[in-house]
Design a protein around this nucleic acid. Structure first.
Lengths: 202, 202
DNA sequence: CAACATTAATGAACGGCGTTCAATACCGTG
DNA sequence: CACGGTATTGAACGCCGTTCATTAATGTTG
């Protein structure tokens, strides 16, 4: 039998998450299995079910970690500068993580809960954070807009940023001459935000 | 043994695609299997490999069909009106299909080829079509822009439209009060396009 | 009409998957 | 040192996509 109590349950959880992250980054979003993860740790598959309720749960924990990294970058970008510059910096950080850790990023956005199980609160909180940071910047950018309008703008803007990064990461841009995603993000933010500002002045 | 030659190979292919479509719409994007498809047709799993090279190939054929439906709607929307109205109509058609045939739409955009196999030309053509239609409208909307600029705009715009529809379809908008995707598409097109036009005038 | 060649379809097998759970081997405690 | 508790196992279940030799129905020929 394998060594006992070499690691606490928490340590083992962290190790399992790390093993999955490694596997995903090395082999791609859809090329891992409970058996491989356990193998990497030197345990049997069944053991993982004492750490997580199932594979979905483990994936969710890894995704939370990835979202934390994403949020950290976004928060850093929120530091200083006018809203336009900050939002651009945020969008570029979003793209950068998608680029540098493509598979982890894909896992966050391509994972669907089995049998429509509800996403836990501690997970939803992390996705909400991003939208909130965008809204904060919009408060400065279009002070005349009410909260409702800002909500629409934040979701529109960030949904768009996400779409652009997604097309890039999934290689759907090779159709008829590729365009750098940076140019697309610039185009989006320049035009969308400047028009929003103009309307706010009226 | 099952009846022979009741159907031509082409008929069987169409039936298999239809069976998969049915299964996907009924049970969701990730709840089908070769065995279920064959079962629906009254055949054994192995038989499907005389019609398609593998499951990926079958999925690709269904996705091509879905893209054809999408393109048909987009072409219809391209009929008449000023570019802004036409592009809005196109975006709304995009959203409408995502709404009415969510699972089929998801299958198109969530399917990844195994072992990074190349996507066949006949498939790429269908995805290119959409971007081209957007570019045609932009030619009218911003006549001053050169082809390169229009390419960037078309991809930026359609990547954004896609991102917004995706967030809606995947239920990622429940975070802190939902916003109707129609409002987001309106916001995107109004602001992005109007700013593009203004720049074109300079 | 019988014998044959062709081919549509089968069904069993392979190696893999996520998940469950009784049995087991180890550990700290008394 | 024995014992109770528990961390870990390993076998099993019912799935999965895919392959392929075998079979059975067909169309063709003599």
């Amino acid at each position: 039998m394998a060594r006992r109590n070499q690691h606490s349950k928490e340590e083992l959880r962290a190790m399992a998450i790390e093993a999955l992250a490694d596997l995903v980054e090395r082999e791609g979003v859809d090329n891992f299995s409970v058996r491989q993860i356990a193998g990497k740790l030197g345990y049997t598959p069944g053991m993982l079910y004492h750490l997580f309720v199932n594979l979905d749960d483990l994936i969710l924990h890894l995704n939370a970690q990835t979202l934390d990294a994403l949020n950290a970058r976004i928060d850093r970008a929120a530091g200083h500068g006018d809203p336009m510059a900050v939002l651009k910096a945020m969008a570029f950080e979003y793209l950068r993580l998608a680029r540098e850790h493509t598979a982890l990023w894909q896992l966050v956005f391509s994972h669907r809960m089995a049998n429509q199980a509800p996403v836990p609160d501690w997970y939803v909180d992390r996705t909400r954070h991003m939208f909130e940071q965008v809204e904060v910047q919009l408060k400065d950018w279009v002070p005349a807009a009410d909260q409702r309008q800002r909500q629409v703008m934040a979701r529109t803007l960030w949904g768009s940023v996400h779409g652009i990064c997604l097309l890039h990461v999934e290689n759907k841009l090779n159709v008829a001459g590729d365009v750098a995603p940076e140019a697309m993000l610039e185009s989006l933010l320049d035009h969308y935000l400047s028009s929003c500002a103009r309307e706010g002045e009226k």
